[in-house]
């Protein structure tokens, strides 16, 4: 699979695949490694960000959301719940530092997305055809309720049911419980994970918008134990400007 509109990349081995041909998003048997998360943004074109990303000035904020975003920037993200060890929902999980693993369990018909950093978050994506819970059966949470399916070489994840206790990206773009997230994950070559998300939250944005970034494969190592809650002393010193 070619990666359309990807930044220039070093040479890589081809995408590893399952017997039925769809991409393997983890390490092949006999190898170890993880996705070197930690950077990347839904907006801007620098670094590993997709060149198709819009600039932050183009994000279709609702007025209150724009004001809140600007306040978060002005105060230098001092109130970011992630610095208080809140779980990283949505795209935040893909740029939480200290590694990312994506394991597909075909027998269980689900994908597990594991964060090496933060509070050691693991998200379940159901591939068994189930629907989202409806009405009061949907309990808002940090990770929401995720269902997925493969479209060719792309894993498409649909998630609703988020709470408002976290920032879904490091940049601090606001969201509400109405957030509906569509993520598209592919592995255009062995060393590259392509992550894209479409943000659909009509309470916070005037229309859906998308962005993404590439994540490098870190071969030959497993990530180590990391719990943000172990000895987090930053919160009391985060004063901002």
């Amino acid at each position: 699979m070619e990666c359309e509109a990807c930044p220039q990349r070093p040479p890589s081995a081809p995408t590893p695949r399952w017997p039925d041909g769809h991409p393997l998003l983890s390490a092949p048997p006999g190898q170890i490694g993880y996705w070197d998360s930690g950077t990347g943004s839904l907006t801007g074109k620098r670094g590993n960000n997709l060149p198709t990303n819009m600039e932050t000035s183009e994000v279709p904020f609702q007025p209150w959301a724009k004001a809140l975003y600007e306040e978060r920037q002005r105060t230098q993200s001092k109130n970011d719940p992630h610095a208080r060890c809140a779980a990283p929902g949505g795209p935040r999980q893909f740029h939480t530092p200290f590694g990312l693993l994506i394991y597909e369990l075909p027998e269980a018909k689900r994908v597990l997305i594991l964060s090496g950093g933060g509070v050691r978050t693991w998200r379940v994506v159901y591939l068994d055809g189930r629907s989202h819970p409806q009405g009061d059966a949907l309990n808002p949470g940090f990770l929401g309720h995720s269902v997925g399916h493969w479209e060719g070489d792309t894993l498409v994840i649909d998630t609703i049911g988020f709470n408002e206790k976290f920032w879904f990206v490091r940049a601090g773009f606001p969201h509400t419980e109405a957030l509906h997230l569509t993520e598209r994950i592919s592995r255009p070559d062995f060393n590259t994970l392509k992550y894209e998300a479409t943000v659909d939250d009509p309470r916070a944005y005037t229309r859906p918008w998308s962005g993404g970034w590439l994540i490098n494969w870190h071969p030959g190592e497993d990530f180590e134990e990391y719990f943000c809650t172990d000895n987090n002393r930053d919160a009391e010193h985060l004063v901002g400007r």
């Binding site: 890589s12 081995a13 081809p14 695949r17 092949p28 048997p29 190898q31 062995f190 071969p219």
Partner: peptide, 11 residues
Amino acid sequence: LSFSAIIVGSL
């Protein structure tokens, strides 16, 4: 499992 990629360069 079978894989088309066997060796990863030490990037």
